Computed example of a mutant assay.
Amino acid sequence: MRIAFVSDIHGNLAALDAVIQDIERRRVDQVVNLGDTLSGPLLPVETAQRLRALPWLHVAGNHERQVLTLPLARQNASDAYTSGQLAHAEADRTWLASHADPADPRLHRGEMWPDRLGNDIALCHGSPRSDIEYLLETPVGEEARLATPDEIRERLDGRLPPHITLLACGHTHVPRAVRFAGDGVTQDLLIVNPGSVGLPAYDDDHPYPHSRYHRIETGSPDARYAVVERRGDRWVCELISVPYAFEPMARLADQRQRPDWAHSLRTGWMPRA
């Protein structure tokens, strides 16, 4: 079983096409999208139409929830732009609403798609208990560090049964693979975040215990995803970085008055004042 995990496409069609082409040459058995698929100032409708033609499995992220359930006045600029575009594309909005709800406990028990993924795989967007919680990162000051084992255990919140050996998450845009082996969480658990296909850096002023503002930066404009393969009785992860022609997407962000996005797309860093 070879599974490609993608996440956080954010309407970046150029990055998505580059990742699709790279996945096609790797002969994977299944592709799973972990959410935050359309939201942003780029090409949400075109991205939805590209994905609708593919036999991928999709998990909703926090931006799906926000676009589909929050009043427009409460949506941030990225979600509001996407909502406006989807208002004229009912089929794409319906497709987005069909994605698996990350609050569904079946995702965390490995029961949502056992015929296509196996029952030892669990999925979420943020953490098993919240689509906006970082699982593998902890904001401290203006940066986000690798979470400690105790922090990760606390965020898992006892929601993974012992037969789960692979948990895939997204949300933080940071490519990472963390393994717990025989330490009481589970017999052998690999947690994989494939990183972001479409947005390599962002900043956030959501308050945390040790941070009121932080930046997530990968330092490269490349699109990211992961391929996970079972070898014997263990999962092996490859974190993949794919170069693509990012400048048209950056210019589009500029045209839509999002210089923060444009800088991120060109560099993988956030602008400094």
Rank of each mutant, 00 (worst) to 15 (best):
V140L: 12
A253I: 07
H63D: 13
L43N: 13
H171M: 03
R212V: 05
Q30G: 02
L96Q: 10
L136Q: 00
I3Q: 01
N33K: 03
T172Y: 06
A226D: 08
R52H: 08
Q257L: 13
G110E: 11
M1T: 08
L54S: 04
T165H: 14
E24Y: 03
G110N: 06
A177R: 11
P221W: 01
H99V: 00
I132T: 15
R215Q: 12
G40M: 04
P128T: 02
W235A: 02
D222K: 09
V185P: 09
E64F: 05
S211E: 06
Y208C: 02
R116W: 06
V242G: 01
A53T: 14
V67D: 13
G110Q: 08
D233W: 03
A144Q: 01
E64Y: 03
D92G: 02
D104G: 10
A53G: 07
T172I: 04
Y134M: 08
A201K: 02
M270P: 00
R224S: 12
D101M: 08
I9M: 07
D254E: 14
A80G: 12
A15L: 00
G84N: 15
H125Q: 10
W95M: 03
L54K: 14
A144R: 01
Q257R: 15
D101C: 06
E137Y: 06
R155P: 06
E229P: 00
L265Y: 12
P102C: 03
L123I: 10
L239H: 12
H210C: 02
A226G: 04
H210R: 13
V45L: 12
A253V: 10
L190Y: 04
S98Y: 03
P209Q: 01
D260A: 14
L252E: 08
L107N: 12
E154D: 11
G195S: 04
H58V: 06
Y225Q: 10
L189Q: 05
T69H: 13
R116P: 03
G126V: 07
V178E: 12
A181Q: 14
A48G: 13
S220M: 00
Q21D: 14
I20M: 11
I191A: 10
I23K: 05
D254V: 00
